[in-house]
Design a protein around this nucleic acid. Sequence first.
DNA 1: TGTGATGATTGTGT
DNA 2: ACACAATCATCACA
Length: 513
Amino acid sequence: MQSFLMLLREHGGSCSPPAELVTLAGRLCRDLQDDLTQVQPLVAAVLASQLRLHLLDNEHVALVCARVLVQQEQQQAACRLLEGCRVPGGSKELVHLWNDIHYCLAMRRLGVVTLSPVQKFRCRRRNPPPPSICPEGPKSRNFPREVRQTLKDFASGVSTNPSKAERENLALETGLTAEQVYNWFANYRRRQRSLLQHMEPTQKVVSEEVHSAKERELNPLHPSSSPHGDSAFVGRPQWSAGHEEGGPPGSLENTQASWAPLALALGFPGVNTVSKPLSARSLSGDERYLEGSGLDSATLSHICPGPGLCPLAAGSDILDPSLAAPESWLMSLALASSKEVCFQSGQTAHGHILDSRIHPSDTAVAMSIASLGDPSPAGLSDPHNDSPQSVCTEEGPGPSGGRSEMNGFLVTQPPLQACEFILPHSLQDLVPAPSAFPSPVSASELSHPLTSSQVQWPDGQASCDAFWGARMLLEFSGGSWGRTIPGEPSQQHGRSRCGLTSCAAQVTELYPE
DNA sequence: TGTGATGATTGTGT
DNA sequence: ACACAATCATCACA
């Protein structure tokens, strides 16, 4: 201290201090910053010196001098000091002190001894730190819009529960830390759950449907098994337990596939089911396949010829026998394996064929709607115009140009490959495999949620498959699904996120020529 | 200024 | 290490 004071006197008249003097002042202030009484002579000498502006450019010197001024009730002088210094790169501690000074002034003005967090925040907003100590200016605490969009896209398209590797990738992609990515998804999951709880009525409708579907499986004669038993679902395809009677599962004539098992597989209540560890296996794949699909071995041999088809290779405890719908069961199966499952679930009442593929090992979600009847690049013409029975209804006006936006998802590339196998609802309903499928549209093209008006909803008599396709599109895009049936007071609607971890799905709705 | 959204932190349980 | 709930602090917006 003494040597510093001597050195300061020596160079007091010069226009710039030697580096040694500044370094010494900084070190003294850093070492003595917790003892303002001891450092007071230094502060007095610095503030009285012509070299003070140079010395105050040192963070520690400025901090100590401002603190001493505050201690002496000279808040305004402390603020002028902080405004006058030029600390390279700024200083968090100086900003902190700046804020503390203004909290103090605000408390005096308000006659209170403490400020609420909001009051502090508004105090900071009214008194932003000067560029001298915060050159970059106040920055938003929120992540940039693009970053949040990236995270949202991943959450709605791939998984709300990314693996460590996925989080690290996202961190690289967004410039966040892996911890921030982790926090974001934790908050996201929590807030989605909270949101769903607030949407209790909707959730209730869906869960009731799940319940009644299970009941119908157990007891086909149960009153609720009537397709018209629930006004909320009038006109909606229903699942019946046709395969329980030993026959093929659900022919189109007398049975319609169920939403409920699909909901289980797609992530309504079933998210946990699908995301359980895949290691535990108690049944062989064959056993599981038979048990889960409800299909007999003859049917199996008919539907399992395709390369890459996994069912017999993958048994897993994640499979819930209640997921008896072939589609949902296969989806579970695909998750249990690391291979691709491709299945085509049948033809709808309007001749629509829904093809679905699951690519568990792919982290991207791709999906497309294709029109085999219109393979032109235009692909954008509406294939549904030829289907007068199809109705496209919505709860309100969709976004302008919504239809064409939907068309934007119609595949414009020529069909590429043959489908690998067909899973009919019954052997009688077996539909000849289309010769080709289009390639999927990149997930990035689904970066915004679709609306109900942007997918083709089949009419109320159509098979579940077409509903499923439409709904999957909405859900994979992060949108909610909704459908109003003309003449019916109630709506079908819901919101869910696909719970397919590290899984990509392609849903292709095809129209035979 | 009130309010809802958002990011982070902490504590608990597995 | 992770999931989760509760909570806090911060922020944008009406």
